[in-house]
């Protein structure tokens, strides 16, 4: 392995969140396929050749990272819930005349300060550099945030969906997850019931 450039460019939190959400939806799609493939295999019987399972290609580490980072980046104290790509572009453009440097702009986008004290920690020597223009910066930050966090609705449903599919997937594997065993146990219960019915028929 060779590091060509350890800091090629900076990424805003919103970009990372979008990237991780894409991975997440990709994972959901794959787990759906995986469940379907397994069902088909079960139908074909144990002698059928094993098809390629797309879930095998996703490492545990990546999943941990995805879930934990999405959790952090979409927490309620983060402004990313109310951010939109168009709003961020507009914000960066409107910040151009104030002579802020790159890292300060990045932090304004990441933290979306709406109060002077929040901006104070981001920009060095705030009074000297911005002075009266401080309010303008805060106003442009406020306008860049969506009033109604419409984006916040979507992730919630994605998370809910993910939970459903995770259950299904672990249900199929049933190797390491404790609660997966519970689900299997319930299945066995249903099966036992059917067997019982058959017994009754025999008699």
């Amino acid at each position: 392995m060779e590091v060509i450039n350890s800091r090629a460019s900076l990424l805003s939190n919103y970009e990372v969140l979008t990237l991780l959400r894409d991975l997440e939806s990709d994972y959901i799609a794959k787990s759906k396929t995986s469940v379907r493939i397994k069902k088909e295999e079960d139908a074909a019987g144990p002698s059928a050749p094993k098809a390629y399972d797309p879930l095998e290609d996703i490492s545990e580490n990546l999943r941990t990272m995805e879930v934990e980072a999405i959790q952090y980046l979409s927490a309620e104290y983060q402004p990313m819930r109310a951010q939109m790509p168009a709003g961020i572009t507009m914000l960066v453009k409107s910040l151009a005349p104030y002579g802020l440097n790159k890292s300060e702009k990045l932090q304004i986008v990441n933290l979306a300060p709406t109060e002077p004290v929040e901006l104070y920690v981001i920009v060095e020597e705030l009074e000297d550099r911005l002075g009266e223009k401080l309010e303008d910066v805060l106003t442009s930050v406020r306008t860049s945030l969506a009033k109604e966090p419409a984006a916040a609705q979507q992730p919630v449903s994605v998370v809910a969906e993910m939970e459903v599919y995770q259950e299904q997937v672990y249900d199929e594997d049933g190797q390491w997850e404790q609660d997966a065993n519970d689900v299997e146990f319930v299945d066995a219960g249903e099966g036992a019931g059917i067997e019982g019915d058959l017994d009754v028929d025999d008699e």
Partner: peptide, 20 residues
């Protein structure tokens, strides 16, 4: 908080993944 790093590496692909 997040950055992009450019890395170079030799990556082996197992024959079972040739279909991907």
């Amino acid at each position: 908080m997040f950055v992009l790093s450019v890395l170079k590496d030799k990556i082996p692909i197992h024959p079972s993944r040739f279909g991907v």
